[in-house]
């Protein structure tokens, strides 16, 4: 019975976080930052993914990330935009999971590497689509933008994480 409660708790938490990640994705489309960099994303939705990784675990975080990508893609994007997001999301997730496993970094480190690698993943797909390696000309600014937003997202996640842990503990005693 306890197991069942924790299962349903996890599922509802995942649903909530998917909704939250989608809101962040939508907010990101409203922010008019256009530096003309192919493959650039601010990556605000990563706040939800990185928090889920530390709060719930890698499986839940990956699930939330994939569901968000497909829902946002079907609602606002195209087939190609799903491919870019998928590459960015997977590369970013693997980088963050790896850093968390080493236990040598905090959630800020995971978030900033995730942000940088998200843009790297998108750029890799872009280079494959146009079959032109000159596109890596854009790598340095993409790395920097991803890293900066990753740090900001990570600092936010650092504050949110204890609140999330408290909510989960309180829900356990109810």
């Amino acid at each position: 019975m306890n197991n069942f409660i924790s299962m349903s708790k996890k599922i509802s938490a995942c649903g909530l976080l998917v909704a939250l990640a989608m809101i962040f994705s939508y907010i990101e489309t409203l922010i008019p930052i256009n530096m003309g960099l192919p493959g650039m994303k601010l990556g605000i939705a990563n706040l939800v993914i990185v928090t889920a990784l530390y709060l719930l675990g890698p499986r839940e975080a990956l699930l939330i990330s994939l569901v968000r990508i497909f829902l946002v893609g079907f609602l606002f994007g195209s087939g190609m935009s799903i491919l870019y997001s998928l590459a960015g999301g997977l590369v970013s997730f693997l980088a963050m999971m790896f850093l968390k496993r080493t236990e040598k970094f905090s959630i800020v480190g995971a978030s900033l590497l995730g942000g940088a690698m998200h843009n790297v993943g998108q750029l890799l797909v872009a280079a494959a689509v146009v079959e032109n390696a000159k596109i890596f000309y854009y790598l340095p600014p993409l790395l920097c933008v991803g890293c900066v937003t990753g740090i900001l997202v990570g600092l936010l996640a650092l504050r949110i994480l204890p609140m999330g842990q408290k909510i989960i503990q309180n829900a356990g005693t109810l």
């Binding site: 970094f105 480190g109 900033l112 000309y137 790598l139 600014p141 790395l143 920097c144 890293c147 650092l158």
Partner: peptide, 24 residues
């Protein structure tokens, strides 16, 4: 936040800087 986080960020910026210099 840990010291390693700062090292990681510095490493990424350094790498980007080096790459920019090569491109420049």
């Amino acid at each position: 936040m840990k010291k390693n986080d700062i090292i990681l960020a510095a490493a990424i910026f350094l790498f980007a800087g080096l790459l920019s210099a090569i491109i420049f």
